[in-house]
Simulated assay, not measured.
Amino acid sequence: MRICILGAGGLGSVFGALLARQGVDVTLIGRAAHVDAINQNGLQLLGIRGEHTIKENLTAVTDARDTEGEFDTLMLGVKSTDSEAALAGANCLRDRVSVALSFQNNIIKETQLADWLGDASKVIGFSTFEGGLLEGPGRVNNNMTLETSSYIGELDGSASDRVTTLAETLNNAGITTRVMDNIQQVMWEKLTQIANAAGWSVSCEIGNPDLTFADAMVLPEGAEHYLAVAREVLSVYKAMGYTPQNFYTPVSKLKELDSLDDEAAIATITAIGQAMLDGGYRSRTSLHDDILAGKKTEVDFILKPFIDKATELGLEVPTVTACYRIIKVLDNYLK
């Protein structure tokens, strides 16, 4: 199998490293410093799966025009805000790709890929909770995984050999992947979880750059705010006909937050926060990190869909709307 990853950032590099290590022919398209380091010294994979340097089965280029041959799968790994430019720069690949999927956290990624390819039948649904952080050129930290870290499926819910084959390839590489007949729900539920976490953390903690995700969860007011955001994004998710499943257990607690009364839900949130602190978990959402780094955020891809869908369904989401407005003001002054 040959796989091209358009966007060799943290997550793209993790997938590329794990797949190449298993013997898959991988081409990464990334930024010059990262590509140069990979070509000189290999791709260094750090983190929860140990330390490895991958040199075999791995090609790194800065421009899609430098790729060679045809690819069974293209994986889109750039930020949602960069999709249009990245795909436009990869037009030479459109007729050389059999299947395309995206790592991104948004609900338009499949449509964007279909429009780019000119053929919606080439696009499959994908969702992952694998974590990757670039620690420098040629170095990526695989800092997150789960018992089932990824889901894949045809967008119409049908079964197919291509989905089964790709799932087997990912599983063989150690990326635990499950084939789903409801991949649309999986993608919406993940976005629900991310919108909850991102909107809450920025609106709670952005004034203090030393605070991480758990610091506000252990406070009553922080837990109450977390629950308020959760209730609203869940109201939209459920109004679409979905029931929370906790696909990304144990980090997902949407079922509990939906079913428990306020007091029990708040206790659950504070307990999660305390467990994070006790375990030394000191991280933030990527949207929160982007703001602290002075980068434009993906707020219009993460929170705005819930506001738009709420309007469509006749629901009120005032807390989510307030979070969105706060982040949009901050985003306006970022580059």
Results as ranks from 00 to 15, higher is better:
R65K: 14
T53F: 03
G131I: 00
E70N: 15
R65I: 08
I108Q: 09
I48K: 12
G30T: 12
R96K: 15
K122W: 03
L74E: 02
I29F: 03
H34A: 07
G30L: 11
A85D: 14
G42C: 07
L113A: 00
L87G: 09
L87D: 06
A64T: 07
L74N: 02
L134C: 10
A86S: 15
F103K: 10
M144E: 08
I107D: 13
A100H: 04
D66V: 11
G132T: 03
Q44D: 10
R31V: 06
T59L: 15
A64H: 05
L133T: 15
N39Q: 15
N39K: 13
R31L: 08
F103E: 05
A120W: 05
R94D: 07
N142I: 09
E51V: 14
H34I: 09
A120K: 08
M144N: 06
I54F: 10
A86K: 12
V97N: 08
E130S: 03
D72R: 10
A86Q: 08
V35R: 01
D36K: 06
A86W: 04
K109Q: 13
A114P: 15
V99K: 00
C92Q: 08
I38D: 00
F129M: 15
G131Q: 01
N57G: 07
R94P: 04
M144P: 08
R31T: 04
I54R: 02
G30A: 11
E70P: 15
A60K: 10
V123I: 01
L76T: 12
E68A: 07
G131M: 03
A90M: 11
A32C: 02
T128A: 03
A37R: 03
L133Q: 11
T73I: 13
T81R: 05
S102N: 08
L113G: 01
G30I: 11
E51L: 02
F71R: 01
L87Q: 13
L93F: 04
F103R: 10
N39C: 10
N142T: 07
L134V: 13
G30K: 09
A86C: 13
N105I: 11
S127T: 12
V123T: 08
I108P: 00
D95R: 12
D66M: 07
G77S: 14
D95A: 13
R139E: 11
F71I: 02
T62F: 01
G42Y: 06
N91I: 15
N41H: 13
A88R: 13
G138S: 05
N106C: 06
G42H: 10
A64P: 10
L74W: 03
F103W: 07
G50H: 01
D115S: 12
P137G: 00
L45G: 02
L45Q: 15
L117A: 00
N105G: 00
A88C: 06
F71T: 00
T62G: 10
H34F: 09
G69D: 05
N143C: 10
E130Q: 07
G47V: 09
V97I: 15
N41P: 08
F103I: 13
V140P: 12
N106Q: 14
S83D: 14
K122I: 00
G47N: 04
D36A: 12
T59P: 05
T59E: 01
L58W: 03
V35D: 03
R49Q: 15
D63I: 12
A33M: 05
N39E: 10
E51S: 11
G50D: 02
K79V: 09
G138M: 01
G125N: 09
T73Q: 10
V35S: 04
